[in-house]
Write a protein that binds this DNA or RNA. Structure first.
Lengths: 189, 189
DNA sequence: GTCTATATGGCGATAGAC
DNA sequence: GTCTATCGCCATATAGAC
């Protein structure tokens, strides 16, 4: 059984507030109040507001990076890799929907090393995805569109899934995967 | 020939800064510095920071609303309405890419009446779009997916187009329209 | 581990001179 | 129309008592 540390509790509460108003609009006082303590007390558990943000974002970024590595290493067809990437996004969305808001909207408020590693991970992720799309086109499994247009349309949908997942009645994960794969790969007409 | 007022100039400069860092991370001093004047001087042209944000966002929101009204009123097939909505988004993206960042990410920092009218316009817009999708399904022009899944996948792609449009070499608008319509309607496989 | 008190600095906005 | 000077407020963060 997992013990929740006070630091993890702070990060969780903060992620919910960041999702509503964004990193800069949430104060340490807001976070403390949501926990029923005073702002100064937070500093016994975390080094500062920046650490909350970087913990939140980098944890999820690492999950994406590891998930992509696993998919890349598999000996399957490009189109099946894309299928698995879609499922990876859905799994992470279901498990970390609050953190995804910060990852999408507040990553630019990271500082120094945290900012560099995030940007690096994101670029690597996109580059891996781009390569898979290109391989799919060359193998005749995808239509002859600009790879960039295909990459963008899939990725923009997956990246904003967290916004929609909560609004809808949190439908069954497996149904969601099936529908998303079908719509993103086969279109709507 | 259009004369650019000082207020319009402030809103334009601010929109570029908001796009980089978000509304809350940009100060009036930042905006003033980018214009080569002091922060206090801004208040001769605008009533405050809030007015910059609401001018920026509501101008574009009204364009979306009007565009959608025009499409809804047309006597064409549902699928052609969707085609026109995609083109509407691309036109607005090309003409207001900076303002779209604020509209997407900073709308929640609007206050009072401005916030209410924005939320109302956005809900109406989505509802109109949803109805068209449903009509398309009933008419057999679209596949039998959940209307919400179709709506979401198209809209999330269109809403983040502004991020991608600038990164790429600002390709020809008509080529972009053709590609986006094809990918979003017919899929990639 | 939480508190009160406080340091330090940046924020939006205003007053009034030029 | 822009400036300097300044007000009042809230931000992150620290020191030290309990």
């Amino acid at each position: 059984m997992k013990t929740i540390t006070r630091k993890e509790e702070i990060v969780t509460i903060a992620s919910q507030l960041f999702k509503e108003k964004g990193y800069n609009a949430v104060s340490m006082r807001d976070i403390a109040q949501a926990m029923g303590i005073k702002a100064a007390s937070l500093y016994n558990h975390i080094s500062g507001k920046q650490q909350i943000l970087s913990t939140l974002i980098l944890t999820v970024a690492v999950e994406f990076t590891n998930g992509m590595q696993t998919v890349v290493a598999k000996d399957i067809r490009p189109i099946d890799k894309i299928r698995e990437i879609i499922e990876l996004h859905i799994d992470i969305t279901v498990n970390h929907s609050e953190a995804l808001a910060a990852l999408n909207n507040d990553w630019m408020h990271l500082e120094n090393n945290d900012l560099s590693s995030f940007v690096q991970m994101r670029e690597d992720y996109e580059e891996n995805f781009r390569r898979i799309v290109k391989e799919g086109i060359e193998a005749g499994e995808l239509k002859q569109h600009h790879p960039e247009v295909i990459l963008f349309s899939i990725l923009s949908t997956l990246r904003t899934l967290y916004l929609w997942y909560q609004k809808r009645g949190k439908l069954d994960v497996n149904v969601l995967k099936k529908d998303m794969v079908s719509v993103l790969l086969n279109g709507i007409t």
